[in-house]
Design a protein around this nucleic acid. Structure first.
Lengths: 180, 180
DNA sequence: CTCTAATGTATCCACTGGATATATAGAATA
DNA sequence: TATTCTATATATCCAGTGGATACATTAGAG
């Protein structure tokens, strides 16, 4: 895709975009290093110069998802808007969102960018949802409660366990359940 | 492990147990058909006589998890007990629980046992959480709200996004957040 | 007792993530 | 400018995977 030169120019960033695109297209399970490499016209082994292994690449994609979500949420002025924007993001990028929530303790420890991106998201949520003069513990719980509701609802909706209806109906329903 | 006879006796059930054990030991990603087959002393291809493919086997394991969870929840007399038992199950079998929640629409359509098991769980929850004379829609929302909170909390806790504390602290925290 | 359908086996395939060794190029040094 | 050094890309290999096809065995229906 880029030049035919031996060196690629900006392989890390392009690999990230390519991986993210592939994940959103065909799902995480069907996203192979070789497919990502082919998409940016390089060898699958070249990726290892920039990512420790496949999981590290996936975690980097997850981190980019967290960043985008946090950025989108800065537009929220209240809890209801916050929940709507959050849910819309997840419904628009279900596989990316699944990957973000599939990260585990080890990933958060191993990939600093992931930890940072998640913390940034938490900060945005704190600013929007718990701006009052409450104690830190109280504010943390407010965010946690909100996140539990919206993420729990999304998870049940996206999987299909709960036989929820259309996306739009789902959003109004979780808003009602959350009392917003 | 069983006899050395050509026919195995009860391969489907044993395969299910073996797969579930492997999943709880090493995680879904590292559970291969060959490893499951080796555990019950057969060929990986024999599994295909009883499960359409790897995903079908995993979905069957998930269904068995739903059944066990529903059975455990019949002991609950109120919402607080319900939430505690649910959370304890997930914390005791985190990888199995992850698999259960990783099932998607296609799995629920393709594997009838999975749909049935999930519906049975919903029924138990309806009985415990929404026994009153409310409308069906109201009862459904009560269950949904409860499930959103507990599953959302578990998901955030198990992944480590939210930096939650110990399991015990987590349980008391979600009970408080849910107002139970 | 035979025949057939269900079940288990043997063997193959394309593909995967990852390891090792080699080639290239861009930057720093001289 | 010429030379070395290091980061980056490639080539090639490997064991392991899910799945396909063809064949062997066996239990049961007739």
């Amino acid at each position: 895709m880029p030049r035919k030169a031996y060196h690629h120019g900006d392989l890390p960033k392009q690999a990230l975009y390519a991986a993210r695109a592939l994940i959103e297209e065909v799902g995480v399970d069907h996203t192979s290093l070789r497919a990502v490499a082919a998409k940016i016209d390089t060898t699958h082994r070249a990726l290892y110069n920039h990512f420790a292994d496949r999981d590290a690449l996936l975690s980097a994609v997850a981190a980019s998802g967290y960043r985008d979500l946090a950025a989108a949420l800065t537009d929220a002025n209240n809890a209801a808007q916050h929940m709507k924007i959050y849910a819309c993001f997840a419904l628009k990028h279900p596989r990316l969102y699944g990957l973000m929530m599939q990260q585990n303790y080890k990933a958060f420890e191993t990939v600093p960018a992931l930890r940072q991106a998640a913390d940034a998201l938490i900060q945005v949520s704190l600013d929007t949802l718990a701006a009052g003069p409450d104690s830190d513990d109280q504010r943390r719980r407010t965010v946690m409660r909100h996140w539990m509701l919206v993420h729990g609802g999304l998870s049940l909706h996206l999987s299909g366990v709960l036989r929820t209806r259309s996306d739009a109906a789902f959003i109004t329903e979780i808003l009602a359940i959350a009392g917003l």
